[in-house]
Nucleic acid binder design. Structure first.
Ligand SMILES: NC(=O)c1ccc[n+]([C@@H]2O[C@H](COP(=O)([O-])OP(=O)(O)OC[C@H]3O[C@@H](n4cnc5c(N)ncnc54)[C@H](O)[C@@H]3O)[C@@H](O)[C@H]2O)c1
Ligand SMILES: NC(=O)c1ccc[n+]([C@@H]2O[C@H](COP(=O)([O-])OP(=O)(O)OC[C@H]3O[C@@H](n4cnc5c(N)ncnc54)[C@H](O)[C@@H]3O)[C@@H](O)[C@H]2O)c1
Lengths: 213, 213
DNA sequence: ATGGTTATGTTATTATTTTCACAAAAAGTG
DNA sequence: CACTTTTTGTGAAAATAATAACATAACCAT
């Protein structure tokens, strides 16, 4: 679990670097990247060091080299196929964003839903009935799925995905999914995130000993 | 920043407790709640202890009492109004989910967009032109906003929000927003989350010294 | 060249978070 | 009522993570 923050930060750095490159910069320094990414310069150097990424003493980092290194780490050269289960509000938003994912070399290749009215193409993505999901996963060697289904069905679908051979799940249902240790699960609970922001913004009362977030 | 995980976990616990209550349970124990929330029992007791929440030695925790305590902490009795800026793919998904937020006593009272075609009611929520946003915020004492706008406009809108008096922002644009320290910002970068899941699932190669996530 | 300057890379230090361990309270039992 | 069992609450210990410190390499100006 420890390495997860590290990776999240590296991805953040990459995002910033892409923006820097678009703005025409060639080099960054740990402090300039840090300012952009909201991270201390030392932290950045530490993160790079951990993944064996080297810069030039005195010269900072060459953005293009840095991006190459990061892309190598994140296997950015191959296109990464993922599937989407549940094409409702959130699922639809993600499907419609597919060209955004594609720019990052991620691609939703298929959606799945139990609602027959959803079985149609959405933004070029075929939405298929749930029954064919396991076969689709196996035949196409899919390893990662995005779940945007109601909480009540979430664990069941998680089990289906795991049985089909999925290795990573990004889950929007407000429930902590249980799966074998080797399956990576990221639970994104938007209500909780919103609520924690509201709490920190409004209710961080002194009498709870909470001074800042 | 330290307290943030704490709060996130408390919200997770509350979610689990609500489910337990719906299933007809009266009591939980740190280990049963822990199993459900994917957290160690000690961690749960520590979290409760930090917020002065007490259970019954030998008797665990009464779910109703626990929920009362948590609701008190999170100011759950009042309805919390938030606004939404950018009613595109993600913004629309959130707006359509408003009754889900309402169950948690959160409510999107208005949306704002620059696109004139978006200026209409969506799921009962009035979508208004950007120009009226600052006044709306001030007149209605709004403290928290959700941003679902393109990255290019995000910082500018963040500044507008902060100037209007917003104290907390939940941001979906893939950029690290900069704001005064006292403003709470939560950047939700869905691409990065997906990418980190993919990385951990597929690419945690031994030669990087990464064995598990 | 050479000396000064600057930004990295890494080690040491400090802070934070999690886990462990166990005393103490409550509840049940004979 | 003593004795056992169970589960909390918390201080101590261990593990992690973040920050600081600084030696070192590269560059620049003279
Ligand atoms: N939309 C939001 O803004 C939002 C916010 C917070 C949390 N969530 C959570 O995200 C999840 C999805 O939310 P949503 O608003 O998109 O819901 P939704 O009801 O709009 O969509 C759910 C989709 O899943 C499909 N589905 C239901 N059961 C299924 C099954 N067994 N197999 C396959 N497909 C199935 C439905 O047909 C529907 O298309 C929910 O768990 C919700 O609680 C959503
Ligand atoms: N949709 C996704 O699944 C997804 C995934 C990852 C990241 N994101 C990020 O979330 C953000 C929103 O994504 P989306 O897919 O909903 O985008 P979108 O283009 O569908 O919606 C953006 C909305 O913001 C409005 N807008 C643009 N500029 C504005 C301004 N200056 N003031 C007010 N409103 C303005 C647009 O009119 C539009 O309605 C983007 O930054 C995107 O990168 C989205």
């Amino acid at each position: 679990m420890q390495i997860r923050n590290n990776i999240r930060r590296l991805l953040q750095y990459r995002m910033c670097l892409i923006r820097f490159r678009e703005l025409g910069f060639e080099r960054v320094y740990s402090y300039s990247l840090g300012r952009e990414a909201g991270v201390s310069p030392e932290q950045i150097r530490k993160d790079f060091s951990r993944f064996g990424i080297k810069g030039n003493k005195r010269g900072g980092y060459l953005i293009s080299e840095l991006l190459d290194s990061l892309n190598y780490i994140f296997g950015k050269n191959e296109l990464q196929d993922v599937i989407l289960i549940g094409v409702g509000n959130i699922g639809m938003a993600l499907a419609r964003y597919n060209c955004g994912f594609f720019k990052r070399r991620k691609y939703i290749v298929a959606g799945f839903d139990i609602d027959p009215s959803k079985i149609r193409k959405i933004n070029e993505i075929p939405v298929l009935p749930m029954e064919v999901m396991p076969r689709f996963v196996k035949e196409n060697g899919i390893t990662v799925g995005i779940m945007a289904v109601p909480a009540i069905s979430a664990q069941e679908i998680c089990n289906m995905l795991v049985n089909a051979g999925i290795k990573g799940i990004m889950n929007f249902a407000p429930i902590v999914l249980k799966a074998p240790r080797e399956v990576v699960i990221e639970n994104i609970n938007l209500c909780n995130v919103l609520e924690s922001v509201i709490y920190c913004a409004n209710y961080a009362r002194d009498d709870l000993g909470v001074l800042e977030c």
